[in-house]
Design a binder for these strands. Structure first.
Lengths: 218, 218
DNA sequence: TCAATAATTCATCTATTGATGAATATTAGT
DNA sequence: ACTAATATTCATCAATAGATGAATTATTGA
């Protein structure tokens, strides 16, 4: 009783889509649990596929993980590369808008990223993720350097390092906060609220960090 | 070759402090890795103690986890209960100061909390943590309700829910951000920077969220 | 002094894990 | 039609996991 569907050994008729099913199950399960906690048998059960298919398509559990990371992160990376670096504070809103639009449709993705970033730093899983994700971080650093925190734009007395930290906190935390926290504090992050969140964040940052010269009243 | 020290079976002379060593190792290792990924043998090795001591003192791996959570979270909870709810915006700074002073001395603690909050919601580990931690969350909710986000104090047009989210983001994210992110973005959260962080956060929140009537220029 | 209790090591049991290879059935190319 | 490549199931292996009980030694209290 390896699979739910009772099927004899041998190649089935038609396409079964087993590979895609495994990739998708990997995204969901590795996003919801730690790498160690997700067993190959659980992955197979979730994908309604025999566990041996993992070896067949990906060589190993880690191989499945790697393919999943590459194939789900690649389109995100492509989208993010199309965002122009925000030179003026006015661009901040559109930058943030694009950022959330890319991240929000796939809630499992930010969770996966954060979970892996919390794994041991020398682990293979983190190495694999960073191989792709570091490009995304490079882009983010460019935004920070060329955009919001550029030399003359900060209110005087504001530490640029801490300004960067505030920006990251406001942008990232809502996407990665543990569900229990979100529930308890009654702030529900759904796709509908995202454009409000963008406006809100931009407001906080402009009023809270930037010099009060050329600011439209939203 | 179960332990590093070659010792014969039987009760050793004097006190060996094995129980405390295990509690401490549990805090460190469960804070750095997921529950599933930390093996009892690894815990024992880290504590320089035989693995069977876990059963002797705590009954099981989960029992060790539970004792560790209760005994490390209890004093924190006590400290936090002594913070008066901030009624006026001016109290915000002292509230945040106390919050960081309680959290910062033990960097493993915030990480442990966030890691467990990211575990499956029905898991025993999360049940155990929430049994204590929910009291801390209740306190936090009181601060939010009675303090910063109280009726008339917000700048007009600011959504109270999102204001709460901003506050939580700015306070919590710096403590729980994955080390890799912190490194990459060059913001290093050490105890020395904490009082700067408090001032900075208060500034951002006052300028960014609150009504501009009675605000001293920091 | 002696028995009970406390603290420790060690060998081992069972379950689960990731991995593996053989067997089997379908499809595609010639 | 035949053959090679493709896709799948299944039984099983070796390693590791948490748990367990017996054996051993120290401490304490009567």
């Amino acid at each position: 009783m390896a699979t739910t569907t009772e099927r004899a050994a041998g190649r089935p008729k038609g396409d079964s889509d087993a590979r895609n099913r495994l990739i998708n199950s990997a995204l969901v399960l590795f996003g919801a649990n730690s790498f160690a906690q997700v067993s190959t048998r659980e992955l197979a059960r979730h994908a309604e596929v025999d566990a041996a298919m993992i070896r067949y398509y990906f060589g190993s559990k880690l191989g499945l993980f790697e393919s999943m990371v590459r194939e789900t992160l690649a389109p995100v990376l492509a989208s993010l590369k199309s965002i122009p670096a925000a030179a003026a504070p006015q661009d901040l809103a559109s930058l943030m808008q694009t950022y959330y639009q890319v991240m929000a449709p796939n809630p499992a993705l930010p969770r996966l990223i954060v979970r892996v970033l919390h794994e041991p730093e020398q682990s293979e899983q983190q190495r694999i993720l960073l191989d792709v994700f570091s490009q995304i971080m490079d882009l983010s650093r460019q935004w920070l350097a060329q955009g919001l925190v550029k030399s003359g734009q900060l209110r005087e007395g504001v530490n640029p390092e801490l300004a960067r930290l505030s920006l990251i906190s406001l942008m990232v935390f809502p996407l990665i906060a543990p569900p229990v926290l979100i529930k308890q504090f009654g702030v529900d992050i759904n796709p509908d609220i995202l454009s409000d969140l963008v406006k809100h964040n931009v407001g906080v940052l402009q009023q809270g960090l930037l010099q009060p010269h050329a600011q439209e009243e939203q």
